[in-house]
Write a protein that binds this DNA or RNA. Sequence first.
DNA 1: TTGAAAGCGATACCAT
DNA 2: ATGGTATCGCTTTCAA
Lengths: 342, 342
Amino acid sequence: MPVTIKDVARAAGVSVSTVSRALAGPELVSPATRERVQRAAAELGYQPNRAARGLITGRTGNIGLIVPDLANPFFPGVVKGMQARAREADFAVFVADTDEDPAVEVALVRQLAKQVDGMVIASPRMSEDELRAAATETPLVLLNRRVGRIPSVTVDNVDGMRQAVAHLVALGHRRIGYVEGPRTSWANRERLRGLRAAISATADGGADVELTVLGSFLPQFEGGVAAADLAVAAGVTAVIAYNDLVALGLLNRFVARGIDVPGQISVIGCDDIVAAAMVHPPLTSIALPKEQTGRAGVDLLLALLKNSGRSAVSTRRELPAHLMVRRSTGPAPTAPAPTDLP
Amino acid sequence: MPVTIKDVARAAGVSVSTVSRALAGPELVSPATRERVQRAAAELGYQPNRAARGLITGRTGNIGLIVPDLANPFFPGVVKGMQARAREADFAVFVADTDEDPAVEVALVRQLAKQVDGMVIASPRMSEDELRAAATETPLVLLNRRVGRIPSVTVDNVDGMRQAVAHLVALGHRRIGYVEGPRTSWANRERLRGLRAAISATADGGADVELTVLGSFLPQFEGGVAAADLAVAAGVTAVIAYNDLVALGLLNRFVARGIDVPGQISVIGCDDIVAAAMVHPPLTSIALPKEQTGRAGVDLLLALLKNSGRSAVSTRRELPAHLMVRRSTGPAPTAPAPTDLP
DNA sequence: TTGAAAGCGATACCAT
DNA sequence: ATGGTATCGCTTTCAA
């Protein structure tokens, strides 16, 4: 039999209204009664019933999080960040996995919407229209995607690609391949855009770099395995993959075919999942701030909830990406000796 | 403005009680009214408010899941299985991560308990007493651990180890090392027990196998890296690790030191995480049925909830483990040639 | 078979 | 500053 607000009221010798006030806004009651109430509550181990509170306030104290695939090591990091931040704000987090299926995603949003005050969708796979529709039904924050004025947290993919290209070009690479992920992935499009921008900027700088786009492939290990042979056939000296899982697949296939990395070909991934540092050779990767992305997502959502009703605050946060150089990238096989460089 | 039961009642021309009945137990109302009510509900898109329902029924429709570390690829599999099963039963899942900290675990259980009908704790790190206490506060199911009569889903670790040892012995290994995980881990103790049993059984069979226990180490990549040198110094020809993350650490360090796997030393992990097949050489691992474990956990919990109040049903399920042989295990370096075998 | 009404636990408004 | 009370949306007696 859980202790209710009545029990506390009786114990403190006040009315339930007073208890409610003493606990919610300490400045609404006299210091003396506040003291008594708080002690009584503590002694009885009183915990407000969230369902009852939600019934009248219209708030559940829950937020939802939807991710495409928990098995992709990128997302647990995001989940951790979200939970940490949500807990600080006294919110609980529902997590749901869509198995990369846009239809499941749409269904889950609708189902979850009733049970939460708002939700965060990480790397949404559904269409822009569907997202816009969802945003009208429930406060919504997007991670790794921008759609209209829906609040979002993104990473500077374009700059990440700039760093990767600069690194490769400095190593003497002139023929670079990119292994595409899902076309429905906003990040994929952004990365491709960043890549093209970086390469044309390089052209202005004098170096003549050629980009070969391969794909699209599954954003998983298997996708990389499949892409590896195409990369070799394309004659590139370096490959940048949509994400680390794909890069790991590339690495694996190259090793299996006896192709030396980075001796014959360099590989760069994206996300910097833990496994990137665990393979041999360790994978150079564009690190995205996973936990920070999660935290920022909750931050935006909380801001949204506070302003709910008032003029739609549309907020965006863009986080920086950082290239983690490891041993999977090295000098281009046909690169001129350092002394020959201009 | 969400549609409530009143709206449905008005639309169907009946009282709210009738609506409630028509939707809950169709046999409680006349077929005609049931039909009308259901159509009205469908047309209005009525979704019962779970908070309101929970207030009176005392049920939230939520279940909680606590895991030590979402970043350990073993757990996302479990989470996926749980969610799938929970969704079938129309339950939502709260997920919380403890960062392997027993204290956090205890705190989370207490906090979550108020918001759920029951909870599942995967690989609990807290003490038996704490678990027993938790079990009295809320319906509880344990994954990968057995404590008293608390319902649990476990994997047959002992048999898994038997398979691993049999595999190694067949390859000619006689000096085997085990890298321990956390001493607070039930699975660790079970695996050690299974290992010892398998080895003494082998002794009865004539082969004289020696076990060297190393550790304990962090159940992570870094733990394996640290353990690798000890394994080499101990002169074992094969190492079995507490889990795949540790095994990957071993593998990595062996390669870094120029020690050939499996030429000079064989490595076996546990869990069969996806990364196991992604490294080079691919890791032989004892596969645990991750999703099935999650599903079974929810099954047990649902059964518990149904019987709540009645005599404590204590149930256990034990799932089988399967050795996945890959290239990280091979003949022992000093093994006699196949023709010399008896 | 159906309707009216009493709560579930908390908050918020209206008095005092 | 505090108490009484209506109320949130729903389920569940109790009568009819």
